[in-house]
């Protein structure tokens, strides 16, 4: 059993890295709906799994306490969407105020490591949003009404594909063609599209930072 899980997890990971380049622009995939509000980072990755000193391997504990009964991997909670075989894909859809609570970046690592490339919600907590963006996990904020449309479409047909176009900033329910635009600041968009991260930019500014320090003191 555990061997199968490992292989599955490996292939899922390979899949997501292989397609990563093109997916920066367009993600088209079925979605996994977790229709709950205020999902906090303690649920996404419970504190007892934060003891690692590397960034890898958090995916297997994503939503750990909602996924398994009494922390037992042999007892998956059947109706939890991650365990429900009818749902699959690289897009996680969740209720409003997703990612509230602790600043642990491990939450973004866990979602990404599990194989998601985007999270859709009608509202994101600030720190989570930054953490997601710093890990090339795209947070897509939609209206409450559009979120409900997505939930309904996915519940009716779990194979429903969603299309997220970062370049043109829209998300579409493919079979119905309904779509909505989402916001992302230009700077972050450029970073995501080109694979830059903030630290490269900041390092390139060392001189300006030193000048700032000198003038201020």
């Amino acid at each position: 059993m555990s061997v199968i899980t490992t292989i599955e997890e490996e292939s899922r990971k390979n899949l997501s890295t292989a397609k990563f380049q093109s997916e920066r622009k367009i993600i088209q995939s079925a979605a996994v709906p977790v229709e709950l509000e205020n999902i906090d980072t303690d649920q996404i990755i419970p504190a007892r799994f934060l003891k690692a000193t590397t960034r890898e391997g958090f995916g297997k504990n994503l939503f750990r306490d909602w996924r398994y009964e009494n922390d037992d991997e042999n007892k998956p909670v059947q109706n939890f969407p991650l365990n429900n075989k009818i749902y699959s894909g690289k897009i996680l859809v969740a209720g409003k105020n997703f990612g509230c609570g602790s600043s642990r970046e491990h939450a973004a690592w866990a979602i990404k490591d599990y194989g998601f490339d985007a999270v859709v919600s009608s509202f994101f907590a600030d720190i989570f949003k930054n953490n997601a963006l710093n890990n090339f996990l795209l947070p897509v904020q939609v209206s409450d009404a559009f979120l409900e449309k997505i939930f309904n479409a996915v519940k009716k047909d779990p194979a429903t594909a969603l299309e997220i176009n970062l370049e043109e900033q829209y998300i579409k329910i493919v079979p119905t063609g309904e779509q909505e635009n989402f916001e992302i600041n230009n700077y972050k968009k450029t970073c995501l599209l080109n694979g830059y991260d903030d630290i490269d930019y900041l390092l390139s500014m060392k001189h300006e930072i030193e000048t700032y320090e000198a003038v201020r003191n």
Partner: peptide
């Protein structure tokens, strides 16, 4: 988050 911790350690700045 931790990526930002790294930025501050490296440059004392954040975006």
């Amino acid at each position: 988050g931790t990526s930002e911790v790294e930025m501050v350690l490296a440059t004392q700045c954040l975006m």
